[in-house]
Amino acid sequence: MEETKQMGQEYTRRSIATLGAAMVAAGQAQAQSSQHERVIVPFGPGGTSDILARLVVASINKTPGRTLIVENRAGGGGTIGADAVARSAPDGRTMLLMDIGGLAVAPNLFPNLSFNPETDLLPVTMLSFTPYVVAVHKDVPVRTAQELMAFARRSPDRLTASNSGAGALTHLTSLVLTKAWGAPNATQVPYRGSGPSIAAVVSGEVVMTASTIDVMKPFIESGAVRGLAVSGPNRLALLPDAPTFAELGWPMPEVGSWQGVLTQGRTPVATRDRLEAEFLTAMRDPTVVERVTSLGAVVRAQGSAHLRETLKAQTEEYGRIIRENGIRLE
């Protein structure tokens, strides 16, 4: 009788242990399934990177079993979100989608940057290129790029230019252009992001700005601002009379928003290759292509090697500009 009782107790203990193990396993599986893969956009909603991220993620999520989410983590000119990816697990589940110009500028401005873009982030693929447009407030008495240059030379003290933050690529672009126009002392006015920077030229608070065509488009179409020149290799359908920087002989002819995807630097190559193929496929989705094109951008879906080379070249180029102009951030 006692032996039977002991056997029963042992069976109960084993059953409870088995049930407990099953519950733990189920909990782990549920937790794992809820930990979706993330595409971090290191800026606020509504900008170029955010728009593109949501388009691409929606395309990828059409695949059965795929659930990517977009997470906005703004601050530090993109460095806060980039740092989060650099510190993530090297499993390819956390990705960074941003204008790689920000990554190229950061190490040249922040000597104590918390991560090394070259080693802590692994290039996955280039996605697109969005050209910059130089635009002026509608009441500024210039109607062509040539007239803007003449205005700059004639009245450098009246030329004010907004940018999305000190040291940002829009700041570097505006600084290089105004110097080339003969107005090295033009006033560069930093704002906290592209939205406020564009609002400043729309309201007439500043004379001009240089920003991406996708965010400038509605204001150009409404007549609030006048687009005078565009970067990139070709004129835009939206501004057929606006010459390219190259046509005008301006510096930085290929400046603009180069959007790319990176992941944690120690991620296995096989995982990187899978992500690369996935994002390149998404950039061939007709819905994505149509939307990107309608915003004035160009699909530049090229692999990890191209992204790595472009990032290296831009880091060197923007570093030179920063040093030559003595740009320092306090």
Rank of each mutant, 00 (worst) to 15 (best):
A150L: 10
S222G: 03
V207M: 14
S155L: 13
D214L: 15
R158I: 06
V176D: 00
R235M: 13
S194T: 14
V215E: 15
R235F: 02
S197T: 09
A210G: 08
P251Q: 02
Q259T: 15
W250H: 11
G249L: 14
L175G: 01
P184S: 08
V207F: 00
L236E: 13
G232W: 02
A183P: 03
G204M: 11
Q188C: 02
V269E: 15
Q188L: 14
P251D: 01
M252S: 00
I213Y: 07
G260K: 05
Y132V: 07
G204L: 10
S203Y: 08
A224E: 12
T187N: 06
V215N: 08
S155P: 00
A237K: 15
K217H: 13
L172F: 00
L239M: 10
L262N: 01
M252F: 04
W258S: 11
V202M: 02
V215I: 15
P253Y: 02
A237T: 15
G232P: 01
L238W: 11
Q146E: 14
R226P: 02
V206W: 05
A150C: 00
A242N: 13
V207T: 13
A183S: 06
P218S: 06
G260F: 06
S174G: 07
V261L: 12
Q146V: 12
A246G: 09
A135F: 09
G227L: 12
Q146D: 11
Y191A: 10
R158T: 13
T244M: 12
P131Q: 07
S257P: 10
I220T: 09
G182R: 06
N234W: 07
Q264S: 09
Q146P: 01
S174C: 07
N163H: 12
P156R: 06
A224I: 03
P131T: 08
L239W: 12
L248T: 07
Q264Y: 01
D214K: 15
D157F: 03
A180H: 15
R158N: 11
A150Y: 02
R266F: 03
A246Y: 05
V134S: 07
